[in-house]
Write a protein that binds this DNA or RNA. Structure first.
Lengths: 213, 213
DNA sequence: GTCTATAGCGGGATAGAC
DNA sequence: GTCTATCCCGCTATAGAC
């Protein structure tokens, strides 16, 4: 067998959570440690003991804050989905009403969320499958709501002739996928600032729907 | 605690491996079972016993074919990278010499690889981090070679004025990310045939680099 | 090559003192 | 809330018969 080395799943980024929504005190520290570990080695690859060590408490103490390892993941996944949904709706509310501006705003917000909280995005997207359906349901609703935001903007742009794209559904999927991958490589070890990436990606999205900006 | 239900990480697709490169006999059956299980619940979430059960052999028998659970993953990850690299180089060899045709060919091949073998692509991309560096190295070399294929086509297209894209590196990353996500949703439960997706994505890529096709 | 059996360890979770 | 101590189980991997 091997020693403990493991390649990273994401760039070396500090484990940060959105302000305001993060619980205070030990509960918050557990959440942040779990974010780092789940991102590095996955939910199943992270033991309760390692998580407790990272927090600096005994493993038994974890159970005073969360009833199980899975509940910690559930809270992370929910925070991640809420953060994304909030940012997308805010972006739409603040931008002009035409489909091109709305698409650009959605893509910018989508990319910025993944660049600002890459670990949270990675865990939210690739570890949510470890949750039982009951724990997962609220996050899936938010996910569907996000999908619909993009879908509606796309449909509107096609309907009023702003966009020229043969298959709007596929275009929305492609754009969303392109954005999500940002969480896999964005970090301080690469030269692009977050808003530069967001601007470029917004432009890519506009081009995909047939607008040469 | 909970019973054994787990949401899927990918669409419900049969666990298929590229022909020719798959070992025959029990070794091949182990590989296919591991592909299905690693895709469903991840490397750390899959036990040797469950893997053996799926194959229909005793867990001890696995060790007559692979020295460890990790070696099974290593072979899958290597097969995945080899398949992708082969398809990309073949695509380039068969297409015309201009950058637009080359970009379209690369994207088509990239998408088709992820749509033809979604489980392999998912495992190759999201479980490779469970491998120790020595096991991972050959796959990382292939990965870098693939990245360079795309990079060179992009550079050529920009150099000869075919492409009009402000940041070619970011465009290549965005296109690659868009393609890779196909593995997460493609399957028999959705209406798009693989080559339709590939054609659309190729067109999206051309639009990203400023060509309205 | 395949099995039964088991070693040896680390996992998640709990009891109960402080 | 946090600790020490521990239960019990499932894990990877090995030994040895056939």
């Amino acid at each position: 067998m091997d020693e403990g080395w493991q390649p990273r799943r994401v760039a070396a980024v500090a484990a940060e959570l959105p302000e305001g929504v993060t619980p205070a005190g030990t509960r918050g520290r557990i959440l942040k440690a779990a974010l780092a570990l789940y991102a590095e080695t996955g939910f199943h690859g992270t033991s309760i003991r390692r998580l407790a060590d990272r927090v600096g408490i005994n493993s038994a103490t974890l159970y005073s804050h969360y009833p199980s390892k899975e509940h910690v993941l559930a809270e992370l996944v929910l925070i991640g989905h809420r953060e994304l949904h909030t940012r997308l709706t805010d972006a739409l509310r603040r931008c002009e009403a035409d489909p091109a501006a709305q698409l650009a705003a959605l893509v910018r917000a989508h990319v910025l969320a993944h660049a600002r909280y890459p670990l949270l995005a990675a865990v939210t997207n690739s570890e949510l499958h470890a949750l039982a359906p009951a724990q997962l349901a609220p996050s899936l609703e938010l996910r569907e709501a996000c999908r619909r935001l993009m879908h509606d903007v796309m449909a509107q742009g096609v309907a009023d002739g702003t966009f020229s794209v043969p298959d709007p559904t596929l275009a929305a999927i492609a754009i969303g996928g392109m954005d999500m991958q940002v969480a896999q490589w964005f970090g301080p070890d690469q030269p692009y600032p977050a808003d530069v990436v967001a601007d470029h990606y917004a432009r890519f999205a506009l081009r995909i729907v047939g607008l040469d900006s």
